[in-house]
C-alpha cells in the first residue's frame, strides 16, 4: 500500500498534506461535463426586477429595469476613464421612470465636471432611445468617486 519510492514513512502532517494535494490534483471531469449546462441555465434565469413604462407614437410598452441598466452600462463603458459602479432606476407607483442615479469612478486627474456632464448626457440619451422618455438633466444624478488607480475594465 505504501509508495515504493518512499524511504521514510511520512508523518501525520505529511500524510495529510499528501491527501490534500492528491485531492487538488484530481481532474475536474465532473465540472467539465457540467459546465455548459450550468452556465446556460444560470444565464437563462431572469433576475427579479421591476419594469418602467416606455412610450412611443402608438402607445406604451414595458422595459425591464435590468435591460435599461445594461444599456446604460454599455454606453458608459465607451467613455474613457469612467467605470460604472452602480445604476439605480427610481420608478414611481405607476411604473414611470422618475430618475436615474449613476455611481461612477474616474481616475485621479480626470476633468470631473466634464465627465459628470458626459455621463448625464449619455444616460439621458440611452433612456430616451430605450423608452421614449425624456429625462430632464436634474433627473439624472451622477455620484463620482475619484480613484488613485483606475484599472482598465477589460
Amino acid at each position: 500500500m505504501k509508495d515504493e519510492h518512499e524511504t521514510v514513512p511520512p508523518s501525520g502532517d505529511e500524510l495529510l498534506a499528501r491527501a490534500a494535494s492528491t485531492l487538488r490534483a484530481l481532474t475536474d471531469d465532473g465540472w467539465v461535463r457540467a459546465h455548459p449546462r450550468v452556465l446556460e441555465r444560470a444565464l437563462r434565469v431572469v433576475r427579479p426586477a421591476r419594469s418602467v413604462v416606455g412610450r412611443h407614437a402608438h402607445g406604451t410598452f414595458e422595459v425591464a429595469v435590468p435591460v435599461l441598466v445594461t444599456r446604460i452600462r454599455e454606453h458608459l463603458d465607451d467613455i474613457g476613464d469612467v467605470r460604472t459602479l452602480k445604476v439605480t432606476c427610481v420608478v414611481d407607483d405607476d411604473d414611470d421612470l422618475d430618475s436615474v442615479r449613476v455611481e461612477v469612478s474616474v481616475a485621479f486627474g480626470s476633468a470631473i465636471a466634464a465627465v459628470a456632464e458626459r455621463v448625464r448626457t449619455e444616460v439621458r440619451h440611452v433612456v430616451a432611445a430605450a423608452t421614449g422618455v425624456r429625462l430632464d438633466a436634474d433627473q439624472v444624478a451622477v455620484d463620482l468617486m475619484v480613484e488613485d488607480v483606475h484599472r482598465p475594465t477589460s
Binding site: G30, W31, A34, R37, R41, V45, P48
Partner: peptide
C-alpha cells in the same frame, strides 16, 4: 454535485 453547482450559480446570478 452538478445540481448544487447549478443552483449555486443561479443564486449568484440573481
Amino acid at each position: 454535485a452538478d445540481d448544487v453547482a447549478q443552483e449555486t450559480f443561479v443564486t449568484a446570478w440573481t
